[in-house]
Computed example of a mutant assay.
Amino acid sequence: MDDFDDLELRALSAISSHISYIHLLDGVLDQINELLNLYQPPKTGKIRVERWKRTKGDYSVRSPMAVKWIQHRTTRDWRGVVVSTFKVSRSGKSARAFHEHHDRVADYLGALQSVLKLRTEAFTRIETFRRGMLLAERANRPKVLAISAVLQADLDAVPPDLRALQRSANRSLENE
C-alpha cells in the first residue's frame, strides 16, 4: 500500500490546480469584458461577456458566454442574443460608431473566443475525469465485492491452529 500514501494528496492537488486555472480564465474573461465595454459604444451590436444560467441535464450553472446586445427600434428595450463561441471573433461590428476601435475590438473578440474555448476544455477535462471514475467504480464494484466475499469466507474457514502456527513463524522472522 506504500504507493498509495500520497495518492489522495496528489489527486486533490491536481484538481485544485485545475480549478485555479479556471479561475484564472474567468479573470481574463472579466478583463476582456471590461475592455469590450469601454471600446464599444452603447448601440445595437455591442458584444459583452455575460454569465447567464445554463441548464445541463439536471442542474443549472452560471456560465460565461459572448452576448450581442440588440435594442428594439420602437420600444427601445434591450435584449441579449448569445453568440456562438465559434463565431465570436467574426461578430464585431465595424460600421459607423464602431469603426474607430474596430481593430482593437476584433483582437479582444479573438482573445474572448480563445479563452471561452480553453474554459470549455477545462470543464470537459474535469467532467470526463468525474464520469470516468463513477463509471469504473459502478462497473467494477460488484466484481470486487464478490471477490472480497469469497476471500473473507476462505479467511473465516482457516483453522485456528494454522493461525497460531503463522503467528509463531512471524515472531521468528522478527527476531532475525
Rank of each mutant, 00 (worst) to 15 (best):
D3W: 11
F4W: 04
F4A: 14
D6H: 08
D6Q: 12
R10N: 14
R10A: 09
R10W: 06
A11T: 07
L12Y: 08
L12T: 02
I15Y: 11
I15V: 15
S16N: 07
S16E: 11
I19F: 08
S20G: 09
S20F: 04
S20T: 13
H23R: 11
H23V: 05
L24Q: 03
L25A: 01
L25I: 02
L25H: 00
D26E: 08
G27E: 07
V28M: 06
N33L: 01
N33D: 12
E34I: 00
Y39E: 10
Y39I: 11
Y39F: 15
Q40E: 04
P42Q: 08
K43E: 11
T44C: 00
K46G: 07
R48T: 15
V49A: 07
V49H: 01
E50I: 12
R51H: 12
R51S: 08
R51E: 14
K53V: 09
R54Q: 09
K56G: 02
G57F: 10
V61G: 04
V61T: 10
M65A: 06
K68Y: 05
W69E: 05
I70W: 13
R73C: 11
R73K: 15
R73Q: 13
T74S: 06
T74H: 02
T75Q: 09
R79L: 05
R79K: 14
G80K: 05
G80I: 08
V81Q: 11
V82Y: 07
V83C: 13
S84H: 14
F86A: 15
V88P: 03
R90L: 03
S94I: 02
A95P: 02
A97L: 07
A97T: 01
F98E: 05
H99E: 06
E100M: 06
H101Q: 15
H101C: 14
H101F: 10
H102T: 08
D103K: 15
D103F: 12
V105K: 11
V105G: 06
A106P: 00
A106C: 03
L109K: 06
L109P: 00
L109M: 04
G110D: 02
A111L: 15
A111W: 04
A111C: 12
A111P: 01
Q113W: 00
V115H: 00
L116H: 10
L116R: 02
K117P: 03
K117H: 06
T120F: 00
E121F: 09
A122E: 04
F123C: 08
R125C: 05
T128G: 05
A136R: 01
E137Q: 05
R138H: 06
N140C: 03
P142T: 12
K143E: 09
K143P: 02
K143W: 11
V144A: 08
I147L: 15
I147D: 10
V150D: 13
L151A: 14
L155V: 12
L155I: 13
P159F: 14
D161Y: 12
L162Y: 11
R163Q: 07
A164T: 14
L165M: 09
Q166S: 06
R167A: 10
S168L: 07
R171V: 02
R171H: 12
R171I: 07
R171D: 08
S172M: 05
S172K: 01
L173W: 01
E174C: 01
E174H: 05
